[in-house]
Nucleic acid binder design. Sequence first.
DNA 1: ACAAGAGAAATGTGATCACACTATGAACCG
DNA 2: CGGTTCATAGTGTGATCACATTTCTCTTGT
Lengths: 265, 265
Amino acid sequence: MNRSAMAFLPVSEEEGLTLDELAYRRLSRALVTGAMLPGDRLSIRGVAAALGVSSMPARTALQRLAAEQAVDLLPSGTAVVPRLTRAGFAELSAIRAELEPLAVRLAAPHLTEADWTRLAALISAHDTARGAGEAEAIQAADRDFLFLIYRAAQAPLLLGLIETLWLRRGPLFGAIRGLSGALGGMRHRHGEILASLRERAGEPAAALLRSEIEEATRFIQSTLRFEDDDTAAERLAAIGQLNAHPLDREPTSLSHHRRRRSRGT
Amino acid sequence: MNRSAMAFLPVSEEEGLTLDELAYRRLSRALVTGAMLPGDRLSIRGVAAALGVSSMPARTALQRLAAEQAVDLLPSGTAVVPRLTRAGFAELSAIRAELEPLAVRLAAPHLTEADWTRLAALISAHDTARGAGEAEAIQAADRDFLFLIYRAAQAPLLLGLIETLWLRRGPLFGAIRGLSGALGGMRHRHGEILASLRERAGEPAAALLRSEIEEATRFIQSTLRFEDDDTAAERLAAIGQLNAHPLDREPTSLSHHRRRRSRGT
DNA sequence: ACAAGAGAAATGTGATCACACTATGAACCG
DNA sequence: CGGTTCATAGTGTGATCACATTTCTCTTGT
């Protein structure tokens, strides 16, 4: 595996955790922050060595990520950071556009005064980060803003699903990085959302978030080149050499349907 | 663990699978069909023995189910079939009401003539099962009807999420069983949905499914006694002995945040 | 120069074991 | 008889090993 991709390691409050948990959190963080690039292979022994743990916790963490669809599984069982195709990104965005507004709606009645000031602070953090051109800090502020709301929804199942979606979305931003200027075009509506939430107007706040997600999706789709745009396989297919694109095909369902290689009886 | 709960075992096409997969599938099936009751403990060695495999596959399968939130984890790490509280059920239903209609919308353009006839057959199967009063067959027919559509959406991520939700919902129906007559009051709208889909009218079909889910939810909420209704802890709290309900509290997020017990530093 | 094949390294699966912790029971003391 | 204590069985965590398969690399042949 790509060792250098592991070098982020924001060691924080990780003491007292199970090694399973520790491995999972570090891998998760690597995924959401975009430290892992699409296509990176994550082998058990590889992440074990990179994280300084034995294979057992690494194995557990990878299986958990696979179960959450945060990583894909090759037929051999090796985990690989998903390559988001154009269709895949559209699907991901459509799901987010349903679930995250729901969380906002549920959160509206539960937000406290303290939450509002914290949210306002995160908007300020976003603005200063944007002024300084620090892409990483911008994303962090936005993410914290939204997840503070999502947590307030007091809907653990929903929160887990949303976390899953962000895990899957992360690698895309790793691919974006360097395409720098791209992010400049994206505006958020967090100010308006906060204003609505202050008035306990959950429905309008949800609608605002939904349109924010849809706008961002359209922008990214029009700006970014996806993995399945104009690949070698596709060019060949256009010529007529191939009619199926085995490389581009999305794994069916959870891609957990692997057959076993013949072993003892 | 409850050994007898394992006795269903619809061994079918399970050859050639990884032992991990086999264990996972059997447990999944036990959950969705309602064979497992809320509160059942699933220990690693227990399911290993019940499934006739070693602990390793059992462990993997349980961790995977935990990652999908299909089971909860006690602080000790033991998996337990979730007890759906009233709030939890409301949350689950709200999520379903967002995601499943989305799947219908996405599926509409992809359904073929063959799908339509298969769907019509499943509606018939539902009706005859209802006539015979076979609750199990009714549920199976409904489930197959919906998932045939969901699969046609060609949205693997979405399909995985929906499967997760059904996994979580399963145990509730195990609890319902015996309350027999309860199901009699539930009507579905699959006929109307199919009619809409035949006309490629995805949006109306989605709206129909949404209201079907909402109706069923309201019905169940008004009919069923939930685990958190009138518990001992709640009665005590009413008296003023307790103000917090540690027993009823939902685990935060994925409940994966367990602290490690002190071991070698 | 390029493709095919053989060997070597790496990989996931699965089993088994040791360890610390938890819960459950019985025995014991008041 | 009731409450406490202690031993025992059971639990998840983690490590390590064997094995068949996959994947890479280097060589070889044309």
